[in-house]
Design a protein around this nucleic acid. Structure first.
Lengths: 204, 204
DNA sequence: ATACAGTTTGACCAAACGGTCAGACCAATG
DNA sequence: CATTGGTCTGACCGTTTGGTCAAACTGTAT
């Protein structure tokens, strides 16, 4: 009677995969059961309804995405290194959990009512707050220009996340091949870091 | 026997609204019929199947979004004004057609197979090409730093579009109220313009 | 009036959907 | 061996889904 028996785990993993791939409405309970290798009735045995299963999946992914950005940002690292690590961390995570990220974004917009319920199950948003504070300090120190930390972080996340979410659009509009696009992604961390540092660093 | 009879138009508009709101799987034919004020059978009379109707909707929106960014970019405007107008244009459009943009992004990722069919029905992607060329020129002139025009445009679009698509996430992570977020959106054009110009302008 | 092509619909269909339930299965305990 | 409690399922249910079709309804030209 573990919190995660083998079957429950298999179901949950299958549900994550399929929900991320096809969204809430596009995912059928039978498909989850098939992928998990159990009967549809067992689904309802472990998770009472589709909505409950869905909510748990979203909660799990959101929590994972938020807490995953944490770590290794010490107080004594200079602003350049801080931003570089931040960008690198965000980009790698978004690239690794591409579909999951897009899924959470999309479904959170559609089912805004669920958000209130989901928030309570999530622990740490403190990491971001920490970074916001550090940026505020740097600004007072005069190493970076006057910019609201929120604006700066949004800019950074935007530049990291957008190419990953907009791949088909970018390829279409820019007439890019798969190869060219992959090159673009590979140089992306450097591009965003340079761009950001040039934008906010106060030069002597 | 117009290309758009009154009924056909009503159906198409209803379809756009509902598809944008609920996605492909979340939109039911009966709901479209109800919203258009006609019978479900009439839907199939004008558009043979749900897939065909869906494809036409995506095609129409994608074409609209792409061609809508055009206009008023003359050759003699300086780089600062060019970027400011570009950012302003993108941001206003994305803000105006927020749901449509998100919808096209999401469904284009899911149904990547349809993209090949859809591309053929779209005329002008030339506007972007024009801007890419102009940026290349400025770079050679030495007014802006060495950055691939594609990277620059992606950065700009990213910073414009991301806050609009990630509203719930941002509010959650940054602990923002509706009011604070609206303020953030209102200053966004200025923020992105300043940020971008500082990042790419060669200073004397 | 009649004929005709385009439009619109109620009634209908097979398939798929989320969900239920009685009962089979299976270890572990007495 | 018998009982018990958790696990698992085939069969089933009511509803909803995308799609069809013959028939009714328009207006217009003959």
């Amino acid at each position: 009677m573990d919190a995660f028996s083998s079957s429950e785990e298999k179901i949950f993993k299958a549900a994550i995969d399929l929900f991320c791939e096809n969204g809430f409405d596009g995912t059928k309970m039978q498909a989850i059961a098939d992928k998990a290798g159990i009967s549809k009735a067992s689904l309802h045995y472990y998770f009472r309804s589709k909505d409950r299963l869905f909510k748990k999946v979203v909660q799990n992914l959101l929590s994972m995405l938020i807490t995953n950005v944490t770590g290794e940002i010490k107080e004594d690292t200079c602003i350049e290194e801080l931003l570089q690590k931040l960008i690198s961390g965000y980009f790698d995570m978004f690239r690794k959990f591409r579909k999951q990220t897009f899924f959470v974004f999309a479904e959170l917009v559609k089912h805004q009512k669920l958000l209130a319920d989901i928030i309570q199950g999530i622990d740490k948003i403190a990491v971001i707050q920490e970074i916001l504070l550090r940026l505020q300090k740097e600004r007072e120190k005069g190493t970076i220009i006057a910019i609201a930390p929120e604006d700066l972080i949004i800019n950074i996340i935007a530049m990291c996340i957008y190419p990953l979410m907009a791949e088909p659009m970018i390829k279409l509009i820019m007439s890019m091949s798969d190869n060219e696009f992959e090159q673009l992604l590979n140089r992306r961390k450097q591009v965003v870091t340079d761009f950001t540092l040039r934008a906010i660093l106060v030069r002597s």
